[in-house]
Amino acid sequence: MLALLALCFVLDLWGEVEPVQPGQSKGRQYSANETVRDPLLAPRLEKIGFEYGCVECHRNFSLDNKRRQRLAEHTSIELDHGANSRCDNCHLLDKLDVLVDYEGSHIAFEESEKLCGKCHGPKYRDWKEGVHGRPNGYWLASRGESVKATCVQCHSPHSPAFKPMTPAPAPDERRGSGGNGHG
């Protein structure tokens, strides 16, 4: 009888030990540091199989802001930035790649945050302090640089609110956290 018991043990006749599934590689897709706005580019227009940036057309014919009418070509340009409903709220009309503030001073494209700061004072202050926006690199200046994302790297200036995005996978309660399906 005892020998039978020993045999039962060796043959593992009872119990429900369920081995852990081997871990699936998901790659290192979340180690990338892209911001919420992706790509970072200006709005582009698609026409007969080509893509055009604004300046590519508008260096040839200037904008007439008085007409205030939407052309068919521009339906893909979403403009949802509060009261700013005209191009010249931010752009110099005859030279779109130069920014212009409310008083008419010119601001280079590379320093666009200065323009944003004209209206969004507290946010601009927080950004300069490094607490608005996402830094990368080093929190300790003596070790390396903290690279700040600029306003337009996260917010599209034409429609600054974050767009909804697909969330990464939910936790697997059944397999995760040590659970083995009893949950």
């Binding site: 119990g15 030990v17 369920e18 081995p19 852990v20 956290s177 040590g178 659970g179 083995n180 009893h182 949950g183």
Partner: peptide, 10 residues
């Protein structure tokens, strides 16, 4: 197999 074989979890 570890405590995985119990009903416990985090």
């Amino acid at each position: 197999y570890g405590l995985h074989v119990t009903g416990m979890s985090d």
